[in-house]
Amino acid sequence: MSEIAVQPTVLDVGAEQLGKIYARALLGASEAEGSTDQVIDQLNQLCDQGLAGSQSLRLAFASPQIDADEKCRVLDRLLDDAHPTLVRFLKVMAKRHRLGYVVAVRDSVTALYDEMTGRLLAEVRTAVPLTDSLRSEVTDQLGQRFGKQVRLHEVVDPALIGGMVVRVGDTVFDSSVASRLDKIGRAASAGFAHHLIANSTRFTSAT
Rank of each mutant, 00 (worst) to 15 (best):
P158L: 05
L112G: 03
L121S: 12
A25T: 09
R88M: 04
L121G: 11
A111N: 04
T204A: 15
R88A: 05
A94Q: 05
S136P: 04
A193Q: 03
H97L: 10
R167E: 08
S179Q: 14
D114C: 13
V155G: 02
L99Q: 10
Q149P: 01
A198S: 13
G147H: 13
R167T: 10
R77D: 07
S63Q: 08
Q144H: 10
D67R: 02
A193C: 05
S108W: 07
A190V: 09
F173I: 09
P158Y: 01
Q45C: 04
Q65R: 13
G19Y: 09
R202H: 11
I21C: 07
R96G: 13
E115P: 05
Q141P: 05
D114A: 15
S2K: 14
V128K: 03
V92H: 06
D67L: 00
F173C: 06
V128S: 06
R151C: 06
H195W: 10
V10Y: 01
V109W: 10
D80L: 01
P64A: 04
L160N: 03
V128M: 04
G185T: 11
R202M: 12
A190Y: 05
T201H: 14
S179L: 14
L27F: 12
A127Q: 04
S179I: 15
L46N: 11
V155T: 08
L142R: 03
G14L: 10
V166E: 04
Q42T: 09
S35T: 14
Q17Y: 10
E154R: 05
I21V: 15
F61D: 02
A62C: 02
I184V: 15
T117Y: 04
V168P: 11
S176T: 11
E115T: 05
V138E: 00
C47V: 14
R125P: 01
E3K: 15
V87N: 01
D12E: 14
R88D: 08
P64W: 07
R151D: 07
L79G: 00
V172E: 07
D107H: 13
E137V: 00
E137Y: 00
Q141F: 01
R96Q: 15
P8Q: 07
G50P: 02
L75F: 02
I161E: 06
N199M: 14
V102F: 06
Y113G: 02
Y113E: 11
M1T: 09
A94G: 08
L79T: 00
G118T: 06
G50T: 06
V13S: 13
E115Y: 03
N199F: 12
H97F: 08
C47K: 10
R77C: 03
R106E: 13
T36S: 12
S176L: 05
M116H: 06
A94T: 08
G163V: 03
S133M: 06
M116K: 10
G14K: 09
Q49H: 13
V103W: 09
G147D: 14
R125A: 03
T131N: 09
Q141L: 02
R180T: 14
H153T: 13
L27H: 12
V177R: 15
I184S: 09
V156Q: 05
